[in-house]
Simulated scan of single mutants.
Amino acid sequence: MKSWLFSSFGLMLILEGLMPLFFPEGWRNTFRKMITMKGGQIRFMGLISFSLGLIFLFLGR
């Protein structure tokens, strides 16, 4: 269980790091746009991201 959890967390960090590594200006602009969004919009984006993650997790099993 622990190895699966650490592997998943490591993969998430790798994927999260790709945008600022290869496209730092695009990453910065994205965060500028997110600052102007309302809380509900950010929550909706989080829900979509969470849902897609669950779908990918179940498809990968």
Rank of each mutant, 00 (worst) to 15 (best):
L13M: 14
E16Y: 14
L11M: 15
W27F: 15
T36N: 04
E25F: 10
L15H: 02
W27N: 12
F31Q: 02
W27Y: 15
G10E: 10
M19H: 10
G40I: 06
I14E: 11
R32W: 07
G39N: 08
F22L: 06
P20N: 11
P24F: 00
G40N: 04
W27E: 05
E16W: 15
M34D: 11
M19K: 08
M12R: 03
K38N: 13
L18I: 09
T36W: 03
G17E: 04
F22Y: 13
W27Q: 11
G40M: 07
G39H: 08
F23Y: 13
W27R: 10
E16K: 12
G40H: 02
L13C: 13
M37V: 00
G40C: 04
L13V: 10
M34R: 13
T30R: 11
L21Q: 04
K33W: 08
G26A: 04
L15S: 05
L21T: 06
L18V: 09
G39C: 06
M37W: 03
W27V: 01
M34G: 11
F31E: 00
M19Q: 09
R28Y: 09
I35F: 05
M37Y: 03
I14A: 15
I35L: 05
E25W: 07
G26C: 00
T36F: 10
K38L: 06
L15Q: 02
L18P: 03
L15K: 02
M12N: 02
L11H: 14
F31K: 10
E25A: 12
T30E: 14
I35E: 04
F22M: 05
R28V: 03
F23C: 10
F22I: 02
R28D: 02
G10V: 03
G10H: 09
L15E: 05
M34V: 13
K33T: 07
R28I: 05
P20I: 07
G10M: 10
L21F: 05
E25M: 10
G26P: 00
M34I: 13
M12T: 01
F22S: 04
N29F: 06
R32V: 05
G26Q: 01
L18F: 14
G17Q: 09
M19I: 07
T30D: 12
L21R: 14
M34Y: 15
I14D: 10
L18K: 01
L13F: 15
K38W: 07
T36V: 09
T30A: 14
I35Y: 02
G39M: 12
M12P: 01
I14W: 15
F22W: 14
P24M: 00
K38Y: 10
M12W: 06
F23K: 15
L11P: 09
T36S: 11
L21W: 14
P20V: 08
L13S: 12
E25Y: 05
L13G: 07
R32S: 13
E16H: 10
W27G: 02
I14Q: 06
F31M: 04
M19C: 07
G26K: 03
G40T: 03
N29K: 08
G26I: 03
T30C: 12
K38E: 09
E16V: 11
E16M: 13
K33F: 08
P20F: 14
P20A: 12
W27L: 03
L11V: 11
R32P: 01
G17Y: 12
L11A: 15
G40K: 06
F31L: 08
G26W: 01
G17M: 12
G39Q: 07
P24Y: 00
